[in-house]
């Protein structure tokens, strides 16, 4: 487990970029800087390329490059597998549930947003650390695939951002 906390902004932007194929629907706070925020702003002027790349990478019926759900990265890949139930349990322990009940709870975007909220709420480091181990650490495999497959700079920046989250996450909030 890494020994410093990721920034709330990094987690929030990365989470949204994974959940949202249209860059114009990603809220980038004014004054936010960093490569991912910059790439999202740039992409907002030409959103179609991002939408197409999102489909190609994550949803393509002709071959998904990187699956967004943790259960799909398990030894026996499936949707709504044990990681979905575990994520739902974590969310409920803190009084939350995904808005979309027709999609799995172990979507990496949701997992990152929830992680950010735990950190923001000052949940103790042993708890966020346990959550990190349960639901974030697996993303290393996802990230390396994303780095290899992404063609659009936004997704290359996203891969780097998640990589640094993985390197710095897992402890009590800043």
């Amino acid at each position: 487990m890494p020994d410093s906390s990721p920034s709330l902004l990094a987690l929030t932007l990365a989470g949204q970029a994974l959940l949202q194929s249209d860059p114009n629907r990603i809220a980038v706070p004014s004054g936010a800087d960093g490569p991912l925020a910059g790439q999202i702003r740039l992409a907002q002027a030409a959103p179609d390329a991002v939408t197409q790349e999102y489909t190609r990478l994550f949803l393509n019926p002709a071959g998904v490059e990187c699956h967004l759900w943790q259960s799909v990265h398990a030894a026996e890949p499936r949707l709504f597998g044990p990681a979905h139930h575990s994520a739902l349990e974590w969310f409920r322990r803190f009084g939350a549930e995904p808005q979309q009940s027709n999609e799995p709870a172990d979507h990496l975007g949701l997992l990152l947003l929830f992680y950010a909220r735990l950190i923001e709420e000052g949940v103790p480091g042993d708890v966020t650390g346990a959550y990190f181990n349960d639901h974030i650490a697996w993303a290393a495999e996802f990230t390396s695939k994303l780095r290899q497959q992404a063609r659009h700079p936004l997704y290359l920046a996203l891969a780097r951002e998640i990589q640094s989250i993985l390197a710095s996450g897992g402890t009590q909030a800043m």
Binding site: L8, T12, A27, G95, E97, P98, Q100, L113, R117, E120
Partner: peptide
């Protein structure tokens, strides 16, 4: 987690009270 708004508002956009 819903007592106060989250820093950037994204949490409430994708998660809701259980």
């Amino acid at each position: 987690l819903f007592a106060a708004p989250s820093a950037f508002g994204a949490f409430e956009q994708y998660l809701q009270p259980a």
